[in-house]
Every structure is written in C-alpha cells, then in structure tokens.
C-alpha cells in the first residue's frame, strides 16, 4: 500500500512541476479572488475608511480584508481537496486510461488515499503561502500570527478531514453523470454561497443556515473568523468542535458507501470509461 501511495505522489509531483505556471497561479488565485469584494466594498462605501466603518456596523469587525481573505482561502482550500479526486477521475476518463488503472492490482481506495494526501499537502502549502502574500498586501499579518492560530489549525484540520467524504461523493457523481466540469461549476458557487465566503452566515435566512450547517466548512470558517477577529462563535467553541468531530465520522463513511455503490454499478454496466 505504501508503495502505491509513494508512486501516486511521485506521478502527481512530476505532473505538477511540468507546468510551473500553474504553481504560480495556484498562489495568486486566492489573493486575486479576495481582492474583488474588497475593491467592490471601497466602491460601494466611497472609501476604504468608510468601508471599514460600514462593515464593522454590520459584521462586528473593521478588519474586513482578513475576513474576506480567510473566506476565500478556506473555500479554495476545501474545493481543491474536494475536486482533486473527481477531476483526476475525469482526466483519466478523457485520456482513456481510467479502465487500465482500475484493472491494476491496486485497490481504488488506496489510489484515493494517495490522491487525497497529495491534494491535502498541495492545498495546505497554497493556503499558507497565499495567506502570507495577502497578509503582506493587506497588512494583517500581526492579526494572524497570534497564539490563537493554533486553535484555528485544530478547527481547520477537523473541517478538512470530512471533506474526503465529499470528495468521494463528487467522485461518484462524476462516475454516474460524467459531467465533471458542470458538477464542479455548479457546486463551487453553491458551496461558496452556503458557507459564506464573503459574509457571516448568521445574516442568511433560517432554512439556508440549516443547510449550511450540514457542511463542516461552514463551522470551520465561522469559528476561525471568530477566533482571529473576536467575533461570536457559531454556537459555542465546545459544541462546534463536537459537531465537527461527528462530521469527521459521518461524511467519509457516507462518501465511501456511495462511491462503492456507484463504482460497482458502473463496472457492471461497463460505463466506467465512458464520458
């Protein structure tokens, strides 16, 4: 198993360094993405100072740059973890190599594990580098590097782990519906909308909040902002951590079950490689 993981990591590493331009983009995209609502905020408020005042009145903090950057970075971190497996499946389908991979004497879940491990490592590096770049640009590094950053890391780890379950669910959707790009295009903004990348979910209607709470990332994002910006927690720190722990068990099991079911069905129908 370890050999397989090592081999997958090696292949992914080789793919990555073959396209250095992507690496640079990978660090820049999150920063650029957070710039849009910030500049939009200046435009709407009339000036950065007024933007901070209006934002404080509505959200409770004047540090709107850190608020926005955290939202977009954590969202991007999660989507790169969630989409990686699905996009890998899709690329193999398109190149016609998926069936060959699946007939090798390797368990698909070992491949998934290796793939998720790669996505995790890659995304965390992106997250840290992009956060530092944004911190330098928007001058919020002193707010970030405090002892409470450790607590944020706990929330982040607990929020990310259940996403492997989401990755499997998306993988099964791709195997079933084939339209990977469309599914991703649809789920990306849906996730951004529900978890509140640019706003606190407390301002959303009750039923939207209920749906949002089923996504581990909502709790992680809200509480990380609460820790770093002295805002209110979603419920309270202990209850929030407890819910995240439950999600760590539920989502991966659900994803695994779903993927096994879809994979078995696709193999029987011979539609695994079709796209």
């Amino acid at each position: 198993m370890l050999e397989v993981v090592k081999a997958v990591l090696k292949v992914r590493w080789k793919y990555t360094i073959r396209y250095p331009g992507w690496l640079i983009m990978f660090f820049i995209i999150p920063v650029v993405f957070s710039v849009i609502p910030i500049v939009l905020g200046w435009a709407v408020a009339g000036s950065p100072q007024q933007a901070a005042l209006n934002f404080k009145e509505r959200v409770g903090t004047e540090h709107y740059t850190l608020f926005m950057v955290l939202g977009s970075m954590i969202w991007l971190l999660s989507i790169s973890i969630m989409w990686d497996f699905g996009m890998w499946l899709r690329e193999e389908q398109q190149m016609g190599t998926l069936e060959q991979i699946l007939v090798t004497p390797v368990n698909i879940f070992t491949l998934l594990l290796a793939s998720s491990l790669w996505a995790l490592m890659y995304s965390i590096i992106q997250f840290i580098v992009a956060l530092i770049i944004a911190g330098i640009i928007f001058n919020f590094l002193p707010l970030l590097f405090t002892p409470s950053l450790l607590l944020c890391t706990v929330y982040l780890v607990l929020g990310i782990f259940p996403l492997t379950g989401f990755a499997l669910l998306i993988g099964s959707l791709i195997v079933k519906l084939k339209e990977a790009e469309a599914i991703i295009r649809l789920l990306q903004p849906l996730l951004a909308f529900l978890v509140g990348i640019f706003y606190p979910i407390t301002i959303m209607p009750y039923f939207v909040k209920l749906i949002a709470l089923t996504i581990p990332l909502t709790i992680t994002l809200h509480d990380v902002r609460a820790i770093l910006l002295n805002l209110d927690y979603l419920f309270n720190p202990y209850l929030d951590l407890f819910i995240l722990l439950i999600y760590c068990a539920i989502w991966p099991i659900l994803g695994l079950y779903m993927f096994q079911y879809v994979e078995k069905k696709a193999k029987k129908e011979g539609t695994l490689s079709a796209y």
């Binding site: 849009i36 609502p37 939009l40 905020g41 200046w42 435009a43 709407v44 408020a45 009339g46 007024q50 933007a51 209006n54 934002f55 509505r58 959200v59 709107y64 926005m68 903004p189 951004a192 909308f193 990348i197 640019f198 706003y199 301002i203």
Partner: peptide, 14 residues
C-alpha cells in the same frame, strides 16, 4: 454572493 458582500459595505451616499 457578490451582492450580499456588497451590502455589508453599503452606505446611503455610495
């Protein structure tokens, strides 16, 4: 998403 974000910054004279 963007409209909700904009509303957080809005003021009457903007």
């Amino acid at each position: 998403i963007f409209t909700t974000a904009v509303l957080l910054f809005s003021s009457p004279d903007g």
